[in-house]
Simulated assay, not measured.
Amino acid sequence: MQKILLKSLYLIASIKYPKVRSDLRYFIRDNYYCRLNQVKYIFKDYFVKKKYKIVNYQGEFDQELRYILPFAYWHHVNGTLERTVSCKDMKEFYFFSKNHEERYTERIWQAGYNYYEVPNMTHSNTFDYSKWLRVPLKKQYANSIFLYDKPALIIANKYNIEWDKPPVNYLDLPILGKLITSLKDRYQIIYNRPLAKQIVGDNSEILDLNEYAWIREAHPEVLLMNDLYERHSNEVNNFNHLQLLVYANCNRFISMHGGTAAFASYFEGINIILSAPGNGMEHHFNEFETIFPQLSGAKILHAKNREEVLQYVNLHY
């Protein structure tokens, strides 16, 4: 029955979106099936409304933030959330879950495939927000610890293997130098590129950009998230907890394609996302104008290259 439904939904996607590439229609098909699969929960979700839903996820951080967390939060608000299960150091993201288990010590990116228990589970040109609620991370973690004389601005960089290829979406040292020089007088810049030991990894190997020592020497006014972690280790539960506290007090972000972009989009303000065309499905489905702003109401500016990052910074920051 499932195979027949999937084939039928692919046909519907082909008829409705004839100009969409044939391979991309599989994403639309899968999201159709995810939504259709929710029909079996109508009675439990809207009439019985007792705690029953177990949200269990081990896939990519990006998908967890975009689809899983808002789904779990909806069930919490609806009164139907029984339990949540995720990866190590994710408890603070699920602050609303009274029964949360940190079961997994690694992420498996394939876990999102054929997982139809969430209304939105993959890339699509449309999303269903009927069981999807903004998670108030900014309100939950606003604090008086990470406040500075100048407004905070977070540069959330990354440097890792992408799609089994060398790094594409990252800020190199020359661009970092230009950004810091142009912004440091107006903002307290906080630089964030988590080390492999600080987060739960997936298939994307984290490489060394060799920027930490350079920033400390050339731009000592910049705060490094890694240094903040050491300095406040007695006040936070883990690196994710620190990130939540720091991000909650910030309204200006520069982030990279993937999990860093989704995370920064949770905290309102403006988020400049560097995402080069060619690999990410976000471009094909225009997701930087749909689900990314939806995460918190943040203004999302999609930079397709490093020079566009600089242009957006000059115009908006």
Rank of each mutant, 00 (worst) to 15 (best):
F292K: 01
V168S: 11
F239Y: 15
I155T: 04
I28F: 02
L81M: 09
G201H: 10
S14V: 00
L36C: 02
Y229F: 03
F43Q: 05
Y17Q: 13
M256W: 04
K44H: 11
E289V: 05
K3I: 12
Q243E: 15
L195V: 02
F267Y: 03
G297C: 06
T84M: 03
Y52H: 15
K139Q: 14
Q188C: 13
W109I: 08
P277F: 03
K19P: 01
N234Y: 06
F253R: 02
Y26T: 03
E307W: 00
I190N: 02
K44C: 03
L274N: 04
T105A: 07
N279Y: 14
F43C: 05
K44L: 08
N99W: 03
D62I: 06
D164V: 01
P277L: 04
T260W: 05
N240I: 05
Y57G: 01
W109N: 11
A262E: 06
Y32H: 03
I68E: 06
F96Q: 11
I15H: 07
D202E: 14
N78K: 06
I108E: 09
I42A: 09
L195D: 11
Y116C: 08
N37K: 12
K3A: 14
S86E: 00
K197G: 00
F288C: 04
I300L: 05
Y104T: 04
C34D: 08
H316P: 00
N160D: 06
I15Q: 09
F71N: 08
N271T: 14
R107V: 06
E287H: 07
A196N: 10
V309K: 06
W214F: 10
Y191L: 07
P136M: 10
F61W: 10
E230H: 02
N237G: 09
N279L: 11
L301S: 07
D45Q: 09
A303F: 07
T80Y: 02
Y52M: 08
F267Q: 11
G258M: 05
V39C: 09
K16P: 04
L242C: 07
S182W: 00
E221V: 00
H76A: 13
D208M: 13
E102L: 13
L207S: 08
S275H: 00
L244D: 07
V118K: 01
H302G: 01
I175E: 11
Q2N: 09
Y10M: 09
K49D: 09
A262G: 10
N125M: 15
V118C: 15
R306Q: 13
S8A: 15
R216Y: 01
M256I: 07
Y94S: 07
A262Q: 03
G201K: 13
P136G: 12
A156N: 14
G280V: 12
E308G: 02
V135D: 11
N56T: 02
E287V: 00
M281S: 12
E230F: 04
M225S: 01
L171F: 13
E287S: 07
Y116H: 04
N286M: 05
A264C: 13
I180M: 06
S144G: 08
V20T: 11
L5K: 10
F61C: 04
Y312V: 05
N157V: 03
P220D: 13
L133Q: 15
A156Q: 13
I254M: 04
L36D: 04
Y229L: 04
A111I: 01
L11R: 12
D89H: 14
Y41F: 14
D128A: 10
K178F: 00
L133W: 01
F292T: 01
I190M: 06
V168N: 05
L36R: 00
F263E: 05
S130M: 03
V236N: 04
N37F: 12
E217P: 02
